[in-house]
Simulated scan of single mutants.
Amino acid sequence: MPTQTTKQILGQTLKTMMQTTSLDHITIDKLAEAAHINRNTFYYHFDDIHSLLDWVYQQDVIVALRRESSIDHWQEAYQLMLTYIATNRQFCQNTFRSLSRSALDDVLYHYAGEMVTGVVDSIDPFTPPLLREAIKNFYGHAIAAQVTQWLENDLQESQASMIHKASVMLDGTFAHIIKQGKKDRFYGDR
């Protein structure tokens, strides 16, 4: 079995500490002590707690999505995101309620944006870049906002309900937008 890297140990230690402690109350000294390393080792890998937090989300969510090459539909990707949040509920909620909320916002938007781009490309791989980016930005932020609202409501709504609500809004929408956008003088081919 491969041994964990120092980054992985620090990431897991941070996630463990955030089960009981707000991110805003975790110091590098406390984290290093819990990870059984010294401060200098921490600084060798990360600039601060926030860069470690960003790294954890990148590894846990974004890298995991890229590894899932078998995803055929956006609903499957969305399900993976919701399941990650539910499985790591305390970690995500403590991030959400901390001064580092932007780290979670960024990863939610990045994940949702990749999901949307994948759908656009599957509908029409020749979608003009400006139109593709506009769809990604608009719907990526909309999906991230839906997940943020879910966190604000303490994950009370079921994942199935979340996916259903998104399906009502999205099914057929991208194809229509791509068709209309290609005709538009601003978004379409010039």
Rank of each mutant, 00 (worst) to 15 (best):
67 R>P: 08
8 Q>E: 01
60 D>N: 15
74 W>Q: 05
118 G>A: 08
106 D>H: 14
187 Y>K: 12
10 L>H: 12
74 W>F: 03
73 H>Y: 14
151 L>S: 12
177 I>T: 05
44 Y>T: 15
44 Y>H: 14
168 V>H: 10
151 L>N: 12
81 M>C: 06
130 L>Y: 15
183 K>G: 05
109 Y>E: 03
87 T>K: 13
162 M>V: 10
118 G>P: 04
166 A>K: 13
23 L>K: 08
72 D>T: 11
140 G>K: 02
190 R>M: 07
126 F>G: 15
185 R>I: 12
79 Q>C: 00
73 H>M: 10
13 T>M: 10
166 A>N: 15
141 H>C: 06
49 I>M: 12
147 V>Y: 01
176 H>P: 02
50 H>Q: 10
155 L>T: 01
106 D>Y: 09
88 N>L: 11
134 A>V: 03
138 F>M: 00
153 N>L: 11
157 E>Q: 15
68 E>S: 12
25 H>R: 12
7 K>C: 05
85 I>K: 09
87 T>R: 07
123 I>M: 04
184 D>V: 13
120 V>F: 04
156 Q>K: 13
190 R>W: 13
64 A>V: 14
179 K>F: 08
104 L>S: 09
144 A>Y: 02
56 V>H: 06
4 Q>W: 07
32 A>D: 12
82 L>M: 07
138 F>E: 01
48 D>H: 00
118 G>W: 05
74 W>Y: 08
92 C>I: 11
89 R>G: 09
134 A>Y: 05
3 T>L: 13
71 I>F: 14
78 Y>F: 12
179 K>H: 10
38 N>K: 03
135 I>V: 14
68 E>Q: 13
185 R>P: 11
17 M>E: 06
18 M>N: 00
111 Y>L: 10
11 G>F: 13
170 L>A: 09
120 V>T: 03
48 D>I: 00
103 A>E: 15
62 I>N: 02
177 I>Q: 12
116 V>M: 01
101 R>L: 01
30 K>F: 06
9 I>V: 14
80 L>P: 08
